[in-house]
């Protein structure tokens, strides 16, 4: 988001304030703020209370908050494999997205010429067909006797009865596929702003193309890298659609668990605790990451 908001902030600071009393800003902001307050901020409070529910509550007997902190221990004890697996899959998928997304964003920003706008439309086009339908398509593409698997078996990349569907590879590939545009767009926004003369200057000073890339282009694109990796990693860690459709029960992620605890077993206490643990881990990782990379210009 850094890419979008840096100019926004500059404009906010320098904009000519077009009239109105000094309350106009508040009035304009109020409906949106109230909506987000009531349905985004307050629900976190509800989630925290749900995580402290009496674990013996049920839909019939009702739920009581009895500050049962043990819910967190239960959640970690029962579901730490899913929790770790989610972070591992999301991390790996984010890394792959970064590599291939960077190539695409770089090609659009520097090599596409007059095709640039068309290519950008193509990047967001997948958003316009259903996420679920596209994931189901992967099920067909990676199916056991499908073209991809037979070719790979023929080339001895996969064993004779090797398969892709219902393996961790399919799940990670699905996550990469689904979240790639979230990586490409912020990367493009950062790359597009780079002054090509800087890279030329590096070349004039006898930097090889590789050196020029790693000393000039890459550091200048870091805000896009940070925004893109966050916008990919965070939703990927909570995703369960890819694991459900492309994986077997052995690839269950924490999202699958939370969803089934909430809807099937209606164990709100454990589900709430698990959901909160996921959020806390993500916020912790994001803070460390931002501090390491050293970007404050995120919001």
């Amino acid at each position: 988001m850094a890419a979008l908001t840096a100019p926004a902030r500059a404009a906010e600071d320098s904009a000519k304030r077009v009239g109105g009393s000094r309350w106009t800003g508040y009035w304009l902001l109020a409906p949106g703020a109230i909506w987000l307050g009531l349905f985004f901020v307050v629900p976190f409070y509800s989630l925290v209370s749900a995580s402290l529910f009496d674990p013996n509550g049920s839909v019939l007997t009702g739920y009581k908050v009895n500050y049962h902190v043990g819910n967190f221990a239960t959640a970690v004890k029962d579901y730490h494999p899913e929790l770790l697996r989610s972070l591992w899959y999301a991390g790996l998928a984010t890394l792959i997205c970064l590599v291939i997304g960077y190539v695409l964003a770089y090609a659009i920003a520097f090599k596409a010429g007059r095709w640039r706008n068309l290519l950008l439309v193509l990047v967001i086009a997948p958003f316009f067909t259903s996420f679920l339908l596209r994931t189901l398509s992967w099920k067909l593409i990676l199916a056991d006797h499908g073209f991809v698997v037979s070719t790979l078996q023929h080339l001895h990349v996969l064993g004779h009865d090797g398969r892709l569907l219902n393996t961790w590879l399919a799940v990670v590939a699905g996550i990469v596929y689904n979240f790639l545009p979230f990586m490409v767009l912020p990367l493009y926004a950062s790359l597009e702003k780079i002054d090509g003369r800087l890279v030329e200057a590096a070349g004039d000073l006898y930097a090889s193309p590789f050196t020029a890339f790693f000393k000039v282009t890459w550091p200048l694109s870091l805000p896009g890298v940070v925004a893109g990796t966050l916008l990919t990693f965070i939703p990927a860690a909570g995703d369960y659609i890819n694991a459900q459709l492309l994986g077997s029960p052995g690839e269950r992620m924490v999202g699958n668990v939370i969803q089934s605890l909430f809807t099937s077993s209606q164990d709100y206490a454990t589900a709430g605790a698990l959901s909160l643990i996921l959020m806390i881990i993500i916020i912790g990782m994001v803070l460390v990451y931002i501090r390491k990379v050293g970007t404050e210009d995120l919001v």
């Binding site: 629900p43 739920y63 965070i234 939703p235 959901s275 909160l276």
Partner: peptide, 21 residues
């Protein structure tokens, strides 16, 4: 910024917790 950066499962389950409570 936060709603764009929160996992959907967390937002969805918080909202459900609100509706239930």
């Amino acid at each position: 910024f936060l709603p764009m950066a929160s996992p959907e499962i967390v937002m969805g389950s918080s909202l459900l917790a609100l509706f239930v409570s």
